[in-house]
Amino acid sequence: MTPAFWCILIIIFFNYLLAGIGGWLTIKQTGKFDINQPRVQARELTGAAARVKAAQANGWEVTVVFACCVFIAHFAGVPETEATLPASVFVVSRFLYMVCYACKLSPWRTIIFLVGLAACFWLIKLAVTYSA
């Protein structure tokens, strides 16, 4: 398995980590976790708990984009040595994004999100270069 594929697994792990932290913060804020209506309960959260839940939702959305970019690069014949750096940049950006979201560092969160998006475009550019 290539390093870029491992990066996809790391990103998925980050989302589950956020789910765990979000659940813990939910219990801390509300005194319980509503297993029957978790989305209703999530809408009522405030502060760090709400931000972690939002970061998790964003994480699942962007995981699909990143995974597609990795697969496109792979199937276009991009060597794993070339795909590893942009995939790693994406992983680092997502970690920093989670921290910025949880800590309410909105301007930095946006900048870091754009770095991750640029890493995805980088993978697509490599795919175009190697498939031509």
Results as ranks from 00 to 15, higher is better:
L17F: 15
A67T: 13
I12N: 14
A119K: 06
L126M: 13
E80K: 09
W6S: 12
S88E: 03
A127M: 04
G22V: 05
G47I: 13
W60D: 06
L9P: 02
C69Q: 03
L105V: 08
V89S: 01
C7R: 08
L9F: 15
L45T: 04
V91G: 05
K53C: 09
P3S: 07
L45W: 12
T110L: 08
K32Q: 06
N58Q: 15
F13T: 15
E80I: 05
Q29I: 06
G47Y: 07
A102W: 09
L18W: 10
C120A: 08
Y101T: 11
L123M: 12
R94M: 09
V92F: 05
Y16G: 14
W24I: 12
A50Y: 10
Q56Y: 07
V78D: 02
C69Y: 01
I21L: 10
T2C: 04
V64M: 12
V64P: 06
L126P: 01
H74W: 07
I124L: 15
N58D: 15
F113M: 05
A73D: 04
R39V: 02
G59R: 10
Y101W: 12
Y16S: 10
P79V: 02
S88V: 13
E44D: 12
R51L: 11
L45R: 08
A73P: 00
W60R: 13
F33G: 09
W122C: 05
T26M: 09
H74S: 06
R51N: 02
L45E: 06
Q37Y: 11
N58T: 12
E82R: 13
K125W: 14
R51A: 09
K53Q: 09
T84I: 04
G23P: 01
W60G: 08
Q41Y: 10
Y101D: 01
N36R: 14
S131W: 04
G47H: 11
K104R: 14
S131D: 11
I27A: 10
P38A: 03
M1S: 11
C103L: 14
T2K: 07
M1N: 13
L17N: 09
P79M: 05
Y97Q: 09
P86Y: 04
V78S: 01
G22M: 01
C7I: 08
C7E: 06
P3F: 02
V115E: 02
S93I: 03
A132G: 13
F95M: 04
A49D: 08
T30N: 13
L17E: 02
F90E: 01
Y97F: 14
F33R: 04
M1R: 07
L123Y: 04
F13V: 15
F5R: 09
A4Y: 03
A73V: 00
T63W: 08
S93M: 01
L114A: 14
I8E: 00
P107L: 01
A57W: 09
F95R: 01
L117D: 00
E80R: 10
G20D: 07
V89N: 00
F14P: 07
A48L: 12
W6Y: 14
Y130I: 04
G59T: 12
R109M: 05
A67H: 12
C100R: 07
V89H: 05
Q29E: 14
